[in-house]
């Protein structure tokens, strides 16, 4: 069995699994990090989104071999010493219902706010277009992204460190 090494939430990991095993299942079943979710398996719902070298990436079809040598951040690694601004905004706006889609939504929103500190409505829609929330929390997601952007704007001391353990 081939060995695959990558960085996971700031720590080096190595796993012995087939090359084509999707990163999603390596995270969930091998490494037992279950915050990243399975929703469709065909890149339609976004539940499986992580950051790969800082970029939001769906992992249900991403062979683990393609993560080799790269930095993977999951929802469990998004917070640094305190919660990420997006997580705080999600709490303030009381976004989750069942919560199952939210890891993925939050990872995409966090990546968006690193790219665009003041995203337009259209940018938010585009960044989250790949995510499904069956519970229908979209209105609150919109508000929470705006709130997180506000929080980041009034906190000039904000650094990537505040945004979690990963860099950009």
């Amino acid at each position: 069995m081939p060995r695959h090494r990558f960085e996971l939430n700031g720590q080096p990991v190595s796993v012995d699994v087939p090359d084509e095993m999707p990163l999603l299942w390596v995270l969930r079943d091998v490494l037992q990090l279950t915050g990243t979710k399975y929703g469709c398996g065909i890149m339609q719902c976004g539940a499986c989104t992580v950051h790969l070298d800082g970029e939001p990436t769906r992992t249900c079809r991403l062979p683990v071999a393609e993560a080799a040598g790269r930095r993977v951040t999951t929802i469990e690694g998004l917070a640094g010493d305190s919660l990420h601004a997006v997580q705080r905004a999600w709490i303030a706006e009381q976004v989750p219902q069942c919560g199952y889609c939210q890891s993925g939504q939050i990872m995409s929103a966090a990546a968006l706010l690193r790219r665009a500190r003041r995203p337009s409505g259209a940018q938010v829609e585009a960044a989250l277009a790949g995510h499904i929330c069956r519970c229908g929390t979209y209105a609150r997601i919109r508000r929470a992204v705006a709130r997180a952007a506000d929080a980041l704007a009034v906190a000039p001391a904000w650094t990537d460190e505040d945004a979690g353990a990963e860099d950009g």
Binding site: G35, K37, I75, A79, Q87, W90, V95, Y100, Q102
Partner: peptide, 16 residues
């Protein structure tokens, strides 16, 4: 909601 904190940091445990 009492269940929200666990649902934003990946610690909420579903059946899967």
């Amino acid at each position: 909601r009492l269940d929200v904190p666990a649902k934003v940091d990946g610690s909420a445990r579903f059946g899967l």
